[in-house]
């Protein structure tokens, strides 16, 4: 091999190595970037993950302690249904908010004369607006502007899917409203997870699902964002005699 051929081989080999290294870096750049905890929102999610009402008693002490002792910006009380009985209207979301010093909001999924079904959303400050859009009876999109940290604005959104027929119209509403500020956390019946994920191309969106430890759960939690966000950590503990799962989910907004 001549010196000239050796030079060509050397530079070609070096170019290939650099090209492969850069490609690999691009592919995993966001996943491998250091976790900026200052740009991270912590969200608590309480659920039985089986579409059953969250509270079967009006004692919320354990959950209130958890809310007060574990730092978070938003907490979701999935299926925190309220009774509309005139003599004794029970509204767990508002009772818990009063005890834990939170501001309560509610995403109604269905309403009758005696009961309202849906999820409570608790935040640590007042907000100037809240929007919901009904997808179908039992399925409503919810959104509020809030802060994921003192310096991190976010649009928090939630929805729950139990019926396959709700996925397509629900996904349309989500796509119309999601942007780089949005963090959506909801529940999905496990049998519908792939159908929901297929509505959000992975080139644009990040779809992460989390299952509880109990194999009896019929639902999973999903987190949907654009590529600007990444789920960094999720931990689960169980409260109320292991009937309620409490998830602590940390989502970082990438620079």
């Amino acid at each position: 091999m001549t010196r000239k051929e050796l030079n060509i081989f050397f530079w070609t080999a070096l170019s290939m190595i650099l090209l492969v290294a850069c490609s690999k870096n691009n592919e995993t750049e966001q996943d491998e970037s250091p976790w900026n905890k200052n740009n991270t929102v912590t969200i608590q999610f309480y659920s039985r993950l089986n579409n059953e009402t969250l509270f079967q008693t009006s004692s919320y002490t354990e959950l209130v302690n958890q809310l007060q002792n574990q730092p978070h910006r938003v907490a979701i009380l999935h299926c925190a249904d309220a009774s509309l009985n005139t003599a004794n209207q029970l509204n767990p979301t508002v009772s818990i908010a009063a005890q834990a010093g939170k501001v309560p909001l509610f995403n109604k999924s269905s309403l009758s004369d005696n009961e309202v079904r849906g999820s409570g959303v608790l935040i640590g400050h007042t907000t100037t607006e809240m929007k919901t859009l009904p997808v179908a009876d039992g399925c409503t999109w919810f959104s509020i502007p809030t802060y994921g940290s003192p310096i991190l604005f976010m649009s928090f959104s939630t929805i729950s899917f139990e019926e396959g027929t709700h996925i397509s119209p629900g996904a349309t509403i989500i796509r119309e409203n999601i942007d780089d500020e949005t963090v959506m956390i909801g529940t999905i019946n496990k049998t519908l997870r792939e159908q929901l994920e297929s509505e959000f191309p992975s080139e644009i969106y990040r779809f992460v699902s989390i299952e509880g430890t109990s194999s009896a759960n019929s639902q999973a939690i999903f987190i949907l964002t654009t590529k600007r966000w990444i789920v960094r950590e999720s931990t689960e503990i169980q409260i109320d005699n292991k009937k309620i799962s409490s998830f602590q989910i940390q989502v970082e907004k990438l620079e």
Partner: peptide, 15 residues
């Protein structure tokens, strides 16, 4: 929120 909790009603505050 405290009044809503005492009544079981849904409250919202406007600053």
């Amino acid at each position: 929120t405290e009044l809503g909790a005492a009544l079981g009603m849904f409250p919202v505050f406007g600053k």
